[in-house]
Design a binder for these strands. Sequence first.
DNA 1: CTGAGCCCCTGGGCGC
DNA 2: TGCGCCCAGGGGCTCA
Length: 321
Amino acid sequence: MPPANYPRLRVGEVATPKVAVRGAAGGAIMDAMPELPEVETIRRDLEPHVVGRRIVRTWCSDGPRYGDIHDAAGRAILALRRRGKYLLAELGEVGTVASPDAVSGIAARELVIHLGMSGRLFTAASRPDSPHLRAVIELDGPEHLYFDDMRKFGQLLVVRPGEYEALETLAHMGPEPLSADFDAENFHRALVASRAPVKAVLLGQRVVAGIGNIYADEALFLAGIHPGSRSVSRPQSRRLHAALKQVLAEAIANRGTSFSLYRDGHLREGNHYRELKVYDREDQPCPRCHTAICKTRIAGRGTHFCPSCQKPPRSTGNGRG
DNA sequence: CTGAGCCCCTGGGCGC
DNA sequence: TGCGCCCAGGGGCTCA
């Protein structure tokens, strides 16, 4: 069963990153962890509802992660962008009209939003009845923007555009994996330069942006690379480069992993959840070779891989010694 | 500087 | 049946 007291979305709300999903192995409920595809899905859903609107006022619950958004009041939302797992709402000067000219203008502030593990960002006509509501951004339209976050790992912050001193990860974010900036040769060089397990490099956000635990496991499986490998060959890094693009693009097309909703007492699986090859599939047969999927712990995270398709490197990481 | 590991936080699952 | 421990994880932080 999903959390009984977790607020159900009302009709008209959009994009829920936090939903209940049936674990394929044990029937366990797991959270939808917002990674790049989930955040991008939310961005696309919210964009037509918030861009061009003015922020009338804001409210935040107490806590170090939700303060400092009151400077957003009085500003128009010029654009809603995404960087890695962060949402960036570009805000205009106080009092300026959200005209098409203003929308194309230069932002005066940025509202930075990170959903953490359980954050939900959605628009609604009225304040949702939730014990985990952390922030309200009232707009000059029929709907307001709400941030709900059960586990309090999310973050809201208003900064001057591009000034991310308080956000170390965002300040040092690597290239967007689905953009031309994500260069295969640079990616290979970065992997070779690090002595950390390849999965830890993917999760680090500095070499490539937006990769979380699910898509790290999926991409490494697709590329046939052991997640604990500390050295990758050029062919391997090229496969991983392509696998990351493929996995993320497919997940976006499916509106992200774990987007099932709890309705009328029934659980429905998310669109991309059923496409997962290794994540949360411990002891189930590998879709490629039918070997049982293994689960271990790498970089402090649960890590799933096929021990047959993703063999650990012997010495140099290149099968040819 | 870099990698490893802990911590934050909450609720579901499960062991005793 | 009920209590309480353990787990999940993104990113910030500390320590070696």
